[in-house]
Design a binder for these strands. Structure first.
Lengths: 121, 121
DNA sequence: ACTTCATATGAACGAATGCTCATATGAAAG
DNA sequence: CTTTCATATGAGCATTCGTTCATATGAAGT
């Protein structure tokens, strides 16, 4: 039972040539990177979170403003903001009792714009 | 009970100025577009699907090759390929008994690359 | 200190997701 | 026409996810 460089068995029905398989294996990032990537995209995969991020495109906002803008409860928004914050997609700034959230960096917008391009074609 | 241009109630605790709210509402795409966008990103939010797409970066592949490359069952891969195909992220080409899948367009790679940039910073 | 108000958080519940197993489809070969 | 093989698909199941509800935290004002 032969094994290729990737360590999986090369069965008789394999249609690809060995060199293609080597290239695929060579280019494929490690398990952990791919999981991180999937986890990143998971945060964009819910329309509530997308709407939150879109709202923050214009300016920083506090939790209750976002909740009212999106017609959702404070709790639901807070839970989602925590997820976005843990993934470093947003950052929080406290001002007295109020906490203002803002986009963490330009990547967030770049990723959403890239997705939007695919939608609108 | 006042209402702003977006149709939601402006409560007493609102921290944002009216002009900011107007801009947020004006820039926010419609419900359907945002749902489509979330649905698109959902397809990138699973590491199996990410690995499939990464594999297809190098060349088109048939279902059983992908299954073996990723050490997963043919059924699992087929189910995921169907989802990717419905979202027009991959396209299928039949050659006898074999079906070869390939990336549908360059957006797929662009979106993944954009996500990867955020991961690796 | 006590109250108020914005936010955070944990438990719980229904909905959605990804895989498996069994089976169906459909194309080529005998 | 029957068999074989690659792929597709539906049902079932365990897990994950997003929201709600109740409650905790923590900062400001009285």
């Amino acid at each position: 039972m032969k094994q290729n460089d990737c360590g999986f068995e090369v069965c008789d029905f394999m249609h690809l040539h060995e060199d293609v398989l080597k290239r695929v294996c060579a280019e494929m990032p490690g398990e952990e990177v791919l999981s991180d990537l999937a986890e990143l995209f998971r945060l964009f995969s819910d329309s509530t979170r997308i709407r939150i991020l879109y709202a923050l495109f214009e300016s920083e906002m506090c939790v209750c403003d976002i909740a009212q803008l999106l017609s959702m409860t404070q709790s639901a928004i807070s839970h989602q903001l925590r997820a976005l914050k843990q993934a470093k997609l947003v950052r929080a700034r406290r001002d007295g009792k109020t906490v203002f959230y803002a986009l963490a960096d330009d990547h967030v917008r770049a990723i959403i714009d890239q997705g939007m391009e695919h939608i609108l074609e």
